[in-house]
Design a protein around this nucleic acid. Sequence first.
DNA 1: CAGATGACGATTGTTAACAATCTTTGTCAA
DNA 2: TTGACAAAGATTGTTAACAATCGTCATCTG
Lengths: 207, 207
Amino acid sequence: MEQRLAPNTKLSEARLCETFGVGRMRVRRALLLLSSQGIIELQSNRGAYVACPDKSEAHDVFAARMLIEPPLVRQLAQSSDEIDLTVLIDHIALENAARAQNERTEIIRLSGEFHTKLAQATGNKFIFRMMRELVTRTSLIVGLFGSSENASCPDDEHSNILKAIVSHSPELAEQLLISHLNHIQSGLDMEARQEPQDDLAAILGSD
Amino acid sequence: MEQRLAPNTKLSEARLCETFGVGRMRVRRALLLLSSQGIIELQSNRGAYVACPDKSEAHDVFAARMLIEPPLVRQLAQSSDEIDLTVLIDHIALENAARAQNERTEIIRLSGEFHTKLAQATGNKFIFRMMRELVTRTSLIVGLFGSSENASCPDDEHSNILKAIVSHSPELAEQLLISHLNHIQSGLDMEARQEPQDDLAAILGSD
DNA sequence: CAGATGACGATTGTTAACAATCTTTGTCAA
DNA sequence: TTGACAAAGATTGTTAACAATCGTCATCTG
């Protein structure tokens, strides 16, 4: 969930085994699950490779989010009384703290997590799972195509969206989120893809 | 994809092995994938059981579909020129044929597939995968809570939705789909759950 | 007789050796 | 030098035996 592995990196079973100190069975099981989530790609008899989304896939991810998230925040804004949003308020604080200290990695992670928690706030397991998958993929894409500076979400758009939700302004919340997604997408440079550096442990936390 | 297994049925590895004539590895891999899709539930050291959605899960599934599908068909209706809808037209024909011959199993299967193909028509891999998962879960639920007669989708609502799409009527298409989902949901009897009969091969087609 | 206890059988989880496939490297010939 | 070909090495896929866990049933005790 942390985006720290160069796309197309080969994940050899043997290496993963000794890295995590587990048997090959566990590794293979984890790889299968990751591939079912589209995070890695399993090539028969050739090994596992970190997914490398292309331009078209990036477009699809944002199209899917543009389809789901606006109605989602609209719904949240309509029924935000029965819903616990303290988690999100705390989350905004975390984001600000990370931004204050300029911890780029943490900022990116938290930026994605905001949207995931937004979905989680609906209390709907399926909506949550769908958004988590889309956010994960978005992180991959931002890591690939994002320019170094504004790779994270623009400063306090999250805060504004949350404010619109708690103040029961569905239209405003929806509009802010649409703008937000557009900002993220337009912050990408679809041509020159840059390689992030390695760091195994992060993405494979789920043994 | 066929809903032919009583929920809570235990899927023993040994039995699956000899049923499909494959090694235990293949079976375990398939079970893991099915569990990641929420179709079965893996209990540690206790085996795999067909998922048994409860009232609350059923509610969540329909809420999720209600969130996604209306914007989806609206979008399809707006941009249906650049999109190939012949698959869906053919599909309607298949549905009618099955309905004419009163093949209940086939009707249910095709009814779900209509919605999946609707998502596929967007050409968006992620939207397709999300809808397929939701439709699969819906099939489980309809099989559990659906009364025997109207378990399938009402007669030609699919046809009307498709017509609205091809005639570029986003609002109409959206409204028809909402009604359609409501019809399905209100056709469920959330109290008395009835047991479908067994039939292994269907759901596990993906070895 | 009710409940607890322990052994047995069945099922799942794991490991390690084996087989199959792919990649690389080295050799040879054009 | 370049290309094809073949052998060696490395990696993945599979199988089968072993270990661990769970459920059941019989037995024992209060």
